[in-house]
Amino acid sequence: MLRKADYSAVVFVVAALGLFFIGGILTTVIPPIVDKSWAKPFENSDPSKGVTGKLVKLNDLELRGRAIYVREGCWYWHTQQTRTLLSDTKRSGWKGVDSPISTPDEFVYDSPHLFGTKRTGPDLSRVGGKYDEQWHRTHFKNPRDLVPGSIMPPFPWIANNEEEFKAMVAYLQTLGRAKNWRPDNDYEK
C-alpha cells in the first residue's frame, strides 16, 4: 500500500502525517489528561501520608530572580530534579536527611520548566534554605573562594547589583521548599 506513496505526493503526505500523529498525540496530548498529578499543586498536611507542605506561587521578587536564572542560562549547568535514584536523594539531602524525590505536583506553576538536561554543577532541586545570603554573595563573586576546584563562572554583575542579587537569592531559597522535608526546620534565609 505504501508503494503508492512513491508515485502520489498526496498519498505520501497522508501516510507520513498519519503515522506521525498516532505517536504524536498519544504522547503529548493524552498524558496530561490521563495523569492528573501533572496539574494538581502539591499539598499535604497529614504526616502519616508522607512529607507535608504546600506548593505556593512565586511572588514578584522570586519571579524576578527566576528570570535572571533563565537569562544567565543557569539551567544549562544545573538540573532541578531529584530523580528516583538513591544517590540523588542523598546528594540533594542535607545534614544527614535524605531529600524526597521530585514529583510533578511540585512544578505545576513553572514556566519555563527548569528540569535541565546536564548536571555540570550540582542539582538545585532542594537547594532552597541550604545556604544563607552572605554565602551566595561570596559565591556569585567568585565561586572558587568558597568551593575550591569549582568551574562555575563568576557573576559579579549579579553580586554587585543589590536588586538582582536579592531577587536571585529569594528565588534560590524557594527551590524544593514545597515539601517541608527537613525535620528540624533549619532553613537558611
Binding site: 504522547t27 498529578s37 521530585s102 510533578p104 528540569f115 538536561t117
Partner: peptide, 25 residues
C-alpha cells in the same frame, strides 16, 4: 523511511527517565 515516520515521535519522555514524569510514559 516508514518505520522512522512511525516510531520516532514516541520517545521524548526518555529525556526524563527516573525524573518527575509518569512511569508509564
Amino acid at each position: 523511511f516508514w518505520s522512522l515516520a512511525f516510531v520516532y515521535v514516541w520517545t521524548g519522555a526518555h529525556h526524563m527517565l527516573h525524573g518527575p514524569i509518569s512511569q508509564w510514559l
